[in-house]
Each structure stands twice: as structure tokens, then as C-alpha cells.
Amino acid sequence: MNTRTQVLLWGAQRASAAVLALCVIVHLVTIIYAVRNGLSAAEVLGRTRGSGLWFGFYALFIAAVAVHAPIGLRTILSETFDWRGRSLDVLVLIMGILLALWGLRAVWAVFA
């Protein structure tokens, strides 16, 4: 991986961290609201199904996770196991794709 890509990955991780900070707060507030108001699963689904706003929000959340986590994992694996090079990059790329797919599947489940 060339230096420019490494720097851009660093930038992507910082940017996704900023998005995550916001998303986690909104997510926590939503959970607390739902629990304190005693919303049932059916009532929660009633609010999320067909809602473009909730779909957009959680899709953004998942996108930020799928960018942020693999880049961080790449650094952790590299520093812990002295593992560098193409094999590591391919592994974390696959992990990012899987995180995005699993996450979007969950988002779709509460939207559709």
C-alpha cells in the first residue's frame, strides 16, 4: 500500500470517528427513550418500518462502522503481531465488507 493510501485511510478513520460519535449519541438517546416509554418491539418496528429517516441514519451508522473498525483493526494486528503487507490489507478489507453487509441486513430488517 502506498503512502498516500495510508494517509487517506488515516483521514477516513478520523472522519468516520466523528460520524460515529454523533451516531452513538443519537442511538443511545433513542434506546433510552424507547425503554423509558415502555415501547414494545412491535411499537418500535411501527416507527422504523418505511421510515426513510431511520433507514438513512442507521445506514450512515453502519457505513461509519464499516470504515472505522477495519482500519483500526489493521493497526492493532500490525502492532500486536508485527503483521504487515497485502495479506493484512485484504483481510481487513473483507472484514469491512462483511461488517457493511451484516449491518445493512439488520437495518433492512427493521425498515422493510
Partner: peptide, 14 residues
């Protein structure tokens, strides 16, 4: 350095 290098990378200078 991180900030300068990121700006340079975004502009394709490194």
C-alpha cells in the same frame, strides 16, 4: 505533520 500530510494526500501531492 498529520494535518499537513492529510491535506497533501487529498490534493494528490504525496
Amino acid at each position: 505533520l498529520k494535518r499537513l500530510a492529510l491535506a497533501a494526500a487529498l490534493e494528490g501531492e504525496i
